[in-house]
Simulated scan of single mutants.
Amino acid sequence: MTGKQEDIRVLVVDDQVLIRAGVAALLRAAPGMEVVGEAADGEEAVALAAAHRPDVVLMDIRMPGMSGIAATERILEEAADPAPRVLVLTTFDLDEYVYAALRAGAAGFLLKDAGPQRLLAAVTAVAGGDTLFAPTVTRRLIEAFTRRQPPETGPERPAGALEVLTGREREVLRLTGRGLSNAGIADELVISEATVKTHLNRAMAKLGLCSRAQAVVAAYESGLVVPGSPG
């Protein structure tokens, strides 16, 4: 591993060279950040992610050839543990491609016109395993597209898939889908936050999910949470 041990290792992916170079330059100038590579398309992103094992991948979502959605899915499928956290860069927040990227396992999304401090804060947040946006933002996006066919295929999550979960795991997943934090779920179920985390991690492992956003998508697509329901 190169650089300081605490440095966040970032791979920057964007087909527009000026945007890619600008983001990379910003990260290189920031303390605690290390740019391990720059990719111009999805295929290159997959190769560089395997070679450098970044902590975070800043992924442009619309690129010629392999899209950011397909690249995200490939990177997460092929990554050694721990897998990188993928942060999608997009122009519009209510975007079906962003929804598909979250469905594929991206940890969050960031608008391309976000300021430098927002970008650095977002990279730091996802690298630490934190959720990037308020739950209402993720829910708004997922509710907008959950009944539509994603632009690229992804794992099917019928209601029957939830049969592998225990009753408590289903309940924790349902409350996660409603947008509650671990602390909120703990209060709702009168259990500890550590127990909530254990149940959620087990549920995600059983369903093959790799991010909290993906768990929210799964809760909706399986019918465990219904669009427009309170919460």
Rank of each mutant, 00 (worst) to 15 (best):
E34R: 15
R103I: 09
T136L: 05
D55F: 00
S229L: 02
R20D: 02
A122V: 05
T176C: 09
T176L: 01
T136Q: 08
A218S: 05
A194M: 09
L18Q: 15
G228M: 13
L165D: 10
R148N: 14
A51V: 12
T146H: 08
T136F: 00
R20H: 05
E221C: 02
A40Q: 15
Q214C: 02
T166G: 15
A30L: 12
Y99H: 08
V23I: 15
A25N: 09
R212W: 03
F133E: 06
L27V: 09
E221V: 11
A40K: 15
G154K: 11
L132F: 02
G37E: 14
Q149A: 14
I8K: 10
A71I: 08
R157H: 14
G228S: 10
G128E: 01
K4R: 10
H199T: 06
V56C: 07
V123N: 01
L110N: 12
A203L: 04
R9K: 12
A101C: 02
L87D: 03
L141K: 07
L165W: 10
L132D: 04
E156K: 15
G42Q: 14
A83T: 10
K112N: 12
G228A: 13
T91S: 06
G223M: 11
V217G: 03
V126A: 05
M33P: 13
S67L: 07
L132E: 06
M66Q: 06
V216R: 07
L76V: 12
P54K: 09
E73P: 00
A134W: 04
A186C: 05
D95M: 01
E73C: 01
L89H: 01
L162W: 11
G129I: 05
G128N: 02
E6T: 10
T124E: 10
R118M: 12
L11M: 12
L175K: 03
V23T: 15
G42I: 15
A159L: 13
D15Q: 13
L102M: 06
V88S: 03
G115D: 11
V225T: 10
G129W: 02
E152L: 14
H199K: 11
S229Q: 14
Y220S: 03
A114F: 06
F109Y: 15
I61E: 04
M59S: 08
V216H: 00
G177W: 04
G129S: 02
R9W: 05
A40D: 15
G32D: 12
E221P: 03
G22E: 08
T146L: 01
A83E: 07
V126I: 09
L18T: 15
S67T: 10
Y220D: 06
A49F: 14
T176N: 03
G228R: 14
Y97C: 00
